[in-house]
């Protein structure tokens, strides 16, 4: 994804994408991050218990945990609300 994203938007993208088990590299590509930044974000989310790391078929995978649900739900609700609050733009 291109554009200027906030930290929380990046967290949301990582957690949403990692609902299905993903490798570190695929998260880096999908979320358009560089390895160093991705490592920091993933480390933070692991620390919060939102992401779990495990090995399967000799692959190191990351998966979003149930603990991330309140964050993901709140994010979705608030961002959907952005388009139902305030004025809209049309030609």
């Amino acid at each position: 994804m291109k554009g200027k994203r906030t930290l929380y938007e990046i967290y949301w993208e990582i957690l949403t994408y990692a609902r299905n088990p993903r490798t570190f590299t695929s998260i880096v590509h999908r979320c358009s991050l560089n390895s160093k930044i991705a490592q920091e974000h993933i480390g933070f989310l692991e620390g919060k218990g939102y992401l779990r790391r495990y090995a399967e078929e000799r692959q190191n995978l990351l998966k979003t945990t149930e603990s991330a649900k309140p964050f993901l739900d709140a994010f979705k609700e608030m961002y959907l609300e952005l388009f139902s609050r305030g004025p809209d733009f049309k030609l």
Binding site: T6, L7, Y8, A74, Y79, G86, P87
Partner: peptide, 29 residues
């Protein structure tokens, strides 16, 4: 101008949302 006004407002709402999300994150562990 109407477009930027609408989006500036939306950006400010998203900043409010981000503050709430920050408190959710701080609340965990």
């Amino acid at each position: 101008h109407r477009f930027t006004e609408t989006w500036d407002m939306r950006i400010s709402f998203s900043e409010e949302a981000n503050e709430k999300l920050s408190s959710i994150l701080e609340g965990t562990q």
